[in-house]
Design a protein around this nucleic acid. Structure first.
Lengths: 185, 185
DNA sequence: GTCTATAATTTGATAGAC
DNA sequence: GTCTATCAAATTATAGAC
């Protein structure tokens, strides 16, 4: 699984980590450069403006997320567990990285970030809701499925936010457990 | 009823609005001062450091929120509608101000803000969950009530975030509708 | 309580050498 | 692709006059 550890990849890694932890405006090119042992002008070589970096971050994050979703579904095979795969992938992302969702962070800050960045976040949520929608039983009406899908994504985002705010990741598990119970997944 | 329109109150108003819209690090004393037609040094007169302002903001926000919750409950009287009052008060806050919850914003950013500010946010969520917990039917076990309360608060936070990120406040209503349906409030 | 003045630092960004 | 050098602007503050 050739992990390319180029400067670009390391830059994206440290940038994603920083934004997920502290938010868009708390992260500076200088700081990212320091983390990599390069200069901030080198960061500008990859991403002329900060919003370019954020858009690249969102693109990679979204691609990884939906790819991982499908990969885990493939691995499990049983067709009715797609929703539990969604919970699992989110949980892994939260617990192993100890960080909030990139889109949850930028979604919260959407009133204060460049428009292209906010649009990419909005796209992620639309795709995410659509994915959950498809994973829901087709016996439900389209309107009910959509509402449920929005509810599930919102609850997980809120759960991650509260867990990371209170530095207690058990909060996330408790909320998902209740979510699963009420949705009868 | 005495709406005190002192400089201090106007400052808190504009600061709350700015932070809820754009986040902690996107807001500067200079900008707040400009909004009020004063100088940034005058803002420092009220709040020496930025974190002092944020803590004052959280204190006022939390006080207003729980006061409003009780006031609305008094007005309605029926003892079993406390949960719907919670939904209503949050909705009012979102829709009339067109802004995300102050604590949702700072909760997301909690990894990058001063510790005292993060602690105040965490306090708000603990109180909020406790309030919802008490509003839940006492027929439930304490553990179930707690999980459900966490779920409800998380879902509403996520709903507000997604609604404000996608600039579509109907998203909030849809999620709450499904939340109410599954909780059978 | 508000101002002027100022300071030290950081920030996002660019030009151009190697 | 990385660096040095530089910039203009912004940011968090402080000291002290009025």
């Amino acid at each position: 699984m050739g992990e390319l550890s180029t400067t670009l990849n390391k830059l994206l890694d440290v940038a994603e980590s920083s934004v997920r932890l502290r938010g868009y405006h708390a992260v500076s090119f200088r700081e990212l450069a320091d983390d990599l042992g390069i200069k901030s002008s080198s960061v500008h070589h990859y991403f002329p403006r900060k919003e370019d970096l954020a858009v690249a971050l969102l693109r990679r994050y979204s691609d990884n997320f939906f790819t991982e979703l499908e990969a885990q579904c493939e691995k499990l095979r049983a067709p009715n567990t797609r929703l539990s795969v969604h919970f699992k992938v989110y949980r892994e992302s939260l617990v192993t990285t100890q960080k909030f969702c990139l889109c949850g962070m930028l979604g919260a800050e959407s009133g204060g970030i460049p428009e292209v960045v906010g649009e990419a976040v909005s796209e992620f949520f639309k795709k995410n809701v659509a994915w959950v929608d498809e994973a829901l039983p087709s016996s439900l009406s389209a309107a009910d499925r959509n509402r449920k899908a929005q509810h599930i994504v919102a609850a997980m985002q809120g759960a991650m936010m509260m867990a990371s705010s209170q530095k207690d990741f058990k909060i996330f598990d408790n909320i998902v457990r209740d979510l699963v119970a009420t949705q009868e997944v």
